[in-house]
């Protein structure tokens, strides 16, 4: 076994910023091998038998929570879902107390979604349990970025590419509120892609170019020119507490992706969307349903494989904690078990 050195010594997945190119490549490879399990008649392997995974979601989520839940169950882990409305958080418990309480029941992984950026890093400092970031406000959503990269990788042949090096990816729309945009900009750049951020000034974070190392375009057609992958972001109306856009109809007129606008991008460009889709707002209904160009459902399918790969990675191997330093006790194996 060729054990490549990995920077992921700590058993958490907090964000794309902490993953090296080797880490990302390994996760994508594992997920690509895992995928086949989801198409068997018996969609279950015994890998995580006896492991406990807690999904702790402080924000609403259907696809991500279901995806993590199925990922755990298909690998035979026991999965518990905690939604905040029914939890003791509603009774005034602090976040860290909630986490310490859950840890006392000795779970192996806690998957957390929270509206506050950086919550996971805080939790990871307070507990030994592996923490997975399933979205923290406008900060990061690493598994979404990984599933997007797996989907791009599947389509590289279509784009006449062997790898991510030099691939032009336009991330378009509400960049300001989007953790998906942030994680993807970071992760794709780690893999060598050229990332562009495209959107109206009101929905573009300040210093985006400096912080993410990606050029900013304030015109959709210009931003799309030559792009091989177009990631359309959801207009996050629920996070908008000020007048960011004049109206939804005007937004579509200037920023909505349609077949006509897509003609500015490279021929055969791939269209992606993290979902849920606002049809007729950030993307036309017609383009959403075009299987030749749009890979939204492949993204969902790949999300399951990515989460299985991430849970597997976090549950395998023994982590030895020595004072401040965490090292991994990896035995170099000969010929398997």
């Amino acid at each position: 076994m060729t054990a490549k050195r990995s920077t992921l010594k700590r058993k958490h997945l907090l964000g794309m910023a902490e993953l090296s190119r080797t880490d990302i490549t390994q996760i994508l490879e594992t997920a690509a091998s895992i995928r086949e399990i989801n198409y068997r008649d018996i969609k279950k392997v015994p890998t995580l038998r006896g492991k406990t995974i807690i999904n702790l979601f402080f924000e609403n989520s259907t696809r991500t929570r279901t995806s993590f839940e199925l990922a755990g169950k298909r690998m035979s882990a026991d999965v518990v879902n905690i939604s905040v409305a029914s939890s003791s958080v509603a009774k005034g418990e602090t976040l860290i107390d909630t986490m310490i309480t859950l840890q006392a029941m000795n779970p192996d992984v806690v998957v957390v979604r929270h509206a506050e950026p950086g919550v996971h890093a805080l939790l990871a400092r307070h507990v030994d349990t592996a923490v997975v970031n399933a979205g923290d406000g406008g900060h990061e959503h690493p598994t979404q970025s990984l599933l997007d990269m797996l989907t791009i990788e599947d389509n590289l042949h279509r784009l006449n590419r062997k790898n991510f090096e030099g691939l032009v990816v336009a991330i378009c729309g509400d960049v300001l509120h989007s953790r998906v945009a942030r994680s993807n900009a970071i992760g794709l750049r780690t893999m060598g892609a050229q990332v562009r951020l495209v959107g109206p000034p009101t929905l573009m974070p300040r210093f985006a170019e400096e912080a993410l190392g990606a050029p900013v375009f304030y015109d959709l057609d210009e931003g799309l020119a030559g792009a091989q992958v177009v990631m359309v972001l959801r207009l996050q109306l629920e996070r908008m507490h000020a007048a960011f856009i004049p109206s939804v109809r005007e937004y579509f007129k200037f920023w909505g992706l349609s077949r006509r606008r897509l003609a500015c991008a490279a021929p055969g460009a791939l269209v992606m969307h993290p979902g849920p889709v606002n049809r007729g707002v950030e993307i036309s209904s017609e383009l959403t349903d075009d299987p030749e160009r749009t890979v939204i459902l492949d993204q969902v399918a790949n999300g399951l494989a990515i989460r299985m790969a991430v849970l597997y990675r976090l549950c395998s191997g023994r982590v030895v904690v020595e004072k401040e330093q965490m090292t991994t006790d990896a035995t170099l194996k000969g010929e398997g078990p």
Partner: peptide, 15 residues
Amino acid sequence: FYRDDLDTVGPNPLV
């Protein structure tokens, strides 16, 4: 995914 030594396979097992 069927091995009995999940705890010792190392942090980044090849699959």
